[in-house]
Simulated scan of single mutants.
Amino acid sequence: MTTRRSQVVVLGMTAVLASTLTGCSQETRRTSAGVCVDAQTNERLPDSECDGRRTRAGFVGSPARWYYYNDGARVPGVGQRVSGGSFSAPSNHSYVTGGVDPKGTSTLSSASVKGGKGTTISRGGFGGSGGKGSS
């Protein structure tokens, strides 16, 4: 009788642990943020230049593109030159485009991004499948 009860408790704890781990594996955390940049001059632009609502006057096809920084990076303000990031969107973790303070930030973090458009990169957990989606 005691052995049977122990097995039930162990099986119950295993089910709880598995569901907890599955939940953790699906949790998304923003680890990068994109700022709008003129790809010809590497100058940071207002987010509105990249979000499709406007294009820069005088250009046929806007050179404005999203430029991505990882958490902890120093991000320059609008009008300043960017460096230390990448024009390639992260493929292995979640990120947001826009929402970084136009004045810049000395240490980029999820808390310092206000708004923006997030993209979630999900990796499968127990029985999950990997994929990319927007949130």
Rank of each mutant, 00 (worst) to 15 (best):
T2Y: 12
R5I: 15
S6H: 03
S6R: 13
V8H: 14
V8I: 13
V8E: 15
V8T: 10
V10T: 13
L11C: 05
G12T: 14
T14I: 09
T14F: 05
V16R: 08
V16G: 13
V16Q: 08
L17Y: 13
A18P: 11
S19I: 15
T20L: 15
T20K: 14
L21N: 03
T22K: 11
T22C: 15
G23H: 12
C24Y: 14
Q26H: 03
E27H: 04
E27Q: 09
T28G: 11
T28F: 12
T28N: 10
R29N: 15
S32L: 06
S32Y: 01
S32M: 07
A33N: 02
A33V: 00
G34Q: 06
V37Y: 06
D38C: 10
A39N: 13
Q40C: 13
T41W: 04
E43P: 01
R44A: 07
L45A: 00
D47T: 04
D47N: 15
E49N: 01
R53Q: 12
R54E: 12
T55H: 11
R56L: 02
A57Q: 04
V60N: 03
G61F: 05
P63K: 04
A64K: 05
R65M: 06
R65H: 12
Y67Q: 09
Y68D: 02
Y68I: 12
N70R: 08
N70G: 07
N70E: 12
N70Q: 06
G72P: 00
A73P: 02
A73E: 00
R74S: 07
V75G: 00
V78F: 05
V78S: 10
V78R: 07
V78G: 07
G79F: 10
R81Y: 04
R81V: 00
V82G: 09
S83C: 05
S83T: 13
G85R: 03
G85V: 07
F87Y: 02
S88Q: 14
A89F: 01
P90E: 15
P90V: 08
S91L: 15
N92I: 08
S94Q: 08
Y95H: 02
V96C: 01
T97R: 11
T97V: 15
G98H: 03
G98A: 07
V100F: 05
D101G: 13
D101T: 05
K103E: 14
L108E: 09
L108R: 10
S109C: 00
S109I: 01
A111L: 03
S112C: 01
S112T: 06
S112N: 02
G116C: 09
G118Q: 09
G118P: 01
G118W: 09
T119P: 01
T119N: 08
T119R: 15
I121M: 13
S122H: 09
R123E: 05
G124R: 01
G124Y: 03
G128P: 05
S129A: 12
G130P: 00
G130A: 04
G131V: 00
G131W: 07
K132L: 10
K132Q: 10
G133L: 04
S134N: 04
